[in-house]
Nucleic acid binder design. Structure first.
Length: 470
RNA sequence: GCUCCCAUCGUCUAGCGGUCCAGGACGUCGCCCUCUCACGGCGAAAACAGGGGUUCAAUUCCCCUUGGGAGUACCA
């Protein structure tokens, strides 16, 4: 039998981190076992589902590279199928119509809570069905009243819940739509899902669903319930913890595979290994190895992983992602260095692509003057010989030979000719090139400014020095 | 309230009865390298929630307490 997993988000918002991890685990489990991964949009809530959300989820899946073999399927297009199935259950006696009003249900629930009981449907229409004119009935599942439902959760082990704890849930609403617990079961049966992997918030639904499987004469799939992901403070992940929306991570400058690696490792491990390529994940990930405890999202570790990939990925591939950020900042790419050279100069110094793009400003835009503190310290009379010597050496490089290597040679020659340590020349030059005291190594900084502009900026620095009263 | 789930360094985790005065990683703190900032290298501090059992032996098994979380909808 072919293994089939599915990711089934409801389109009531963007794809968040927890959902992304669920999708990833479903995808990986299917891949490892040579199975199929299906995407299904659970849009039976007419009130809250939106097309914007559907698009957002699809975009995020694509950005993460979680490709699905089938779908997306939409529950809203399968309504007739659910209606048919509900009717069958009524015929077979596994379900019944219920005319109880919401008002009666609400007040009953309130009374039960007040009495310290578990709120539940009292079964009036189960025992004494009585049609009420003008009221559209719902269809309720006739849940077994005795015995226990036991299932073996792939991550939690044996879970047991007594049928006495469950009441008769609604399968079919009066607005002529199915409820979640009913639609999932029908879909998972129809789509031949063998492994249901979902968030732990569904544990309590599972025994009810298993009962529905049995009523339908179907065999339940295997289940795996994943722990939740919390914010750094242990509370539910929310905006104030940083990004919840997966696409926010692209905007913030993270590589998709860095996020994937981080998220895979959050709640799952393979010995002491921290770095996993997508291919490794596809062969190593086992949902059975997922941890049971909830975990907290650690932005520092994500940042570390992101930088790891910035440093070790081929510069060309990083450059492709950097390009997106550069365009966001509206830089004129024709007026600056090739993005791949920017990657090489900055990848050891930044955690994100966004930071990289912002720091590349000095190579794409004109300087906005020298920082007062930097100028006061380095653009002084004593720096003039070094700057002039550097200017001479840099000017002597044939334009076609201009590279970080030839710049490096030129600057060492400039320092040596004056008997100075490289630092004595490099720091004033750095201020001349960037207006600040911090930048990548001096040869890259100068190289990326470009020969013509580099000479201009040295001249500006020299002019600045002579303009300041000694 | 009731039901279910969870519990190793600040964080992510290894551990599946003796190999653990508990290992790795991020972060933190030192030192080294160095043209700034970083990268890198080396090193340090840092945890089995508490209490009962079971056992010759518990971080590992069971129970309770405490503390988290989820569910309890004509939401998913």
């Amino acid at each position: 039998m072919t293994i089939r997993t599915r990711f089934a988000p409801s389109p009531t918002g963007f794809l968040h981190i927890g959902g992304a991890r669920t999708a990833l685990y479903c995808y990986l489990e299917a891949r490892r076992r040579g199975g199929e991964f299906i995407l299904r949009i659970e849009d039976t809530d007419q009130e809250r589902s939106t097309q914007v959300s559907i698009d957002a989820i699809l975009d995020a899946m694509e950005w993460l590279g979680l490709d699905y073999d089938e779908g997306p399927f939409y529950q809203s297009q399968r309504i007739h199928r659910y209606r048919h199935a509900a009717e069958e259950l009524v015929q077979s006696g596994h379900a019944y119509r219920c005319w109880c009003s919401k008002e009666r249900l609400d007040s009953m629930r309130e009374a039960q809570m007040a009495a310290g009981e578990k709120p539940r449907y009292d079964g009036r229409c189960r025992e004494h069905p009585e049609a009420i004119a003008g009221v559209t009935p719902v269809i309720r599942f006739r849940n077994p009243q005795a015995g226990v439902v036991v299932f073996n959760d792939k991550v939690r082990g044996r879970i047991e819940i007594a049928n006495a704890e469950m009441d008769d849930l609604i399968l079919w609403r009066s607005d002529d739509f199915p409820t979640y617990n009913f639609a999932v079961v029908i879909d998972d049966i129809d789509m031949r899902i063998t492994d249901v992997i979902r968030g732990e918030d569904h544990i309590n639904n599972t025994p009810r669903q298993i009962n529905i499987y049995h009523a339908l004469g179907a065999t339940p799939p295997s289940f795996a319930h994943l722990p939740m992901i919390h914010g750094a403070d242990g509370a539910k992940l929310s905006k104030r913890h940083g990004a919840v929306n997966v696409m926010q991570y692209r905007d913030d400058g993270y590589l998709p595979h860095a996020l994937l690696n981080y998220i895979a490792r959050l709640g799952w491990s393979h010995g002491d290994q921290e770095i996993f390529s997508r291919e490794e994940l596809r062969t190593l990930f086992k949902v059975d190895d997922v941890n049971r405890a909830p975990s907290r999202f650690d932005f520092d570790k994500l940042a570390w992983l992101n930088q790891h990939y910035l440093k070790t990925d081929p510069p060309e591939s990083v450059a492709a992602h950097l390009l997106w950020q550069l365009r966001e900042l509206d830089f004129d790419l024709a007026r600056g260095p090739a993005p791949v050279d920017v990657v090489v100069a900055l990848r050891d110094r930044v955690k994100t692509l966004k930071e990289m793009a912002e720091r590349a400003r000095i190579w794409y835009l004109d300087l906005e003057g020298f920082e007062p503190a930097a100028a006061a310290r380095h653009l002084v009379a004593a720096a003039v010989p070094g700057l002039q010597s550097a200017r001479g050496q840099l000017a002597a490089i044939a334009p076609a030979q201009w590279s970080s290597t030839t710049v490096d040679v030129a600057l060492h020659a400039a320092a040596e000719s004056l008997g100075l340590a490289l630092g004595k020349v490099a720091q004033p030059l750095r201020v001349a090139m960037t207006g600040t005291q911090v930048s990548p190594s001096i040869e890259h900084t100068v190289f990326l400014v470009g020969q013509t502009r580099a000479l201009e900026r040295i001249d500006q620095a020299l002019a600045h020095i002579s303009a300041v009263p000694a």
